[in-house]
Design a protein around this nucleic acid. Structure first.
Length: 252
DNA sequence: GGCCAGGAGGCCT
DNA sequence: AGGCCTCATGGC
């Protein structure tokens, strides 16, 4: 089994919280509850969760490749074990990573929770889905989003909602074409587009380059660029990011 | 009070 | 194409 804790809290999703002996998250329109000690059977027996947790992808092969490529990654893989790249909903991923730009993880979570509480459907008592594009366009506005604390990103969320049809075309495109297409959304640049491709479309060779991963490359891999980790740049990036973040605080 | 946060748009050369 | 400035907001 993969490392569920790391998979949920390595920064690829902001939907989950750990309370007591359970992980809870609203994924799509559904509240998912997993027992911290016995999550496997619930995941394996559920087709939706099997796909969400990416059980069909051959991680052993990718991880063996990365461990052989570079000793630092080999060590991280032995510590983290397997971190899976989730197959998240493209729209939810777009909302999440537009919100993430120039922001802190704590505040990203708070803003997305506010978005759920304010506009999302209540799928279980006190648990709300993220708003759909239509819900956002119909019920919200730039002023209201600014009032929630989104600041200058308010306009970006509404533009993304209006262009959500773009997301349906991405699956047929190459990585390069998809990066270009996603950046037609205002507020989506190279980094956010990379996160959407990796975390929603399973493009395992896309390496989101941000302040953290840029620093990591500069200090541990001088002279190298993300193509060094190809064709598993996305997986490598996630282990590098998680390792670096864990030095700061283990619970965010 | 300046600087930074899982950046990106706009404008300048 | 590359280099600044600005964009809300909050924590340190």
């Amino acid at each position: 089994m993969f490392n569920l804790e790391a998979t949920l809290f390595c920064g690829q999703t902001f939907a989950w919280q750990k309370d007591g002996s359970t992980y809870r998250g609203v994924i799509g329109q559904r509240l998912v509850t997993l027992d911290v000690n016995e999550p496997c059977s619930a995941i394996v027996s559920d087709p939706f969760l099997r796909h969400y947790f990416d059980l069909e992808y051959p991680y052993e092969e990718a991880e063996a490749h990365l461990a052989a490529l570079d000793p630092k990654l080999g060590e991280l893989l032995s510590v983290h074990r397997s971190i899976h790249i989730l197959n998240q909903d493209p729209w939810e991923t777009t909302l999440s990573f537009i919100t993430s730009q120039n922001n802190t993880i704590r505040r990203i979570r708070n803003l997305l929770d506010a978005l759920r509480q304010t506009y999302g459907k209540e799928v279980a008592p006190d648990h709300h889905a993220l708003p759909t594009p239509d819900e956002l366009l119909r019920e919200s506005s730039e002023d209201r989003l600014r009032a929630l604390g989104f600041g200058y990103r308010a306009e970006y969320l509404l533009d993304a909602a209006g262009k959500s049809n773009l997301l349906a075309t991405v699956s047929d495109l190459t990585d390069e074409e998809a990066l270009h297409t996603l950046q037609r959304i205002h507020g989506v640049g190279p980094k956010v587009a990379s996160c959407i491709l990796l975390f929603a479309y399973g493009r395992k060779d896309v390496f989101p380059l941000d302040t953290w991963t840029g620093r990591i490359l500069a200090s541990f891999y001088p002279g190298k660029d993300p193509s060094f980790f190809s064709p598993y740049g996305g997986i490598a990036q996630q282990h590098l990011f998680y390792a670096e973040r864990r030095k700061i605080d283990s619970h965010w």
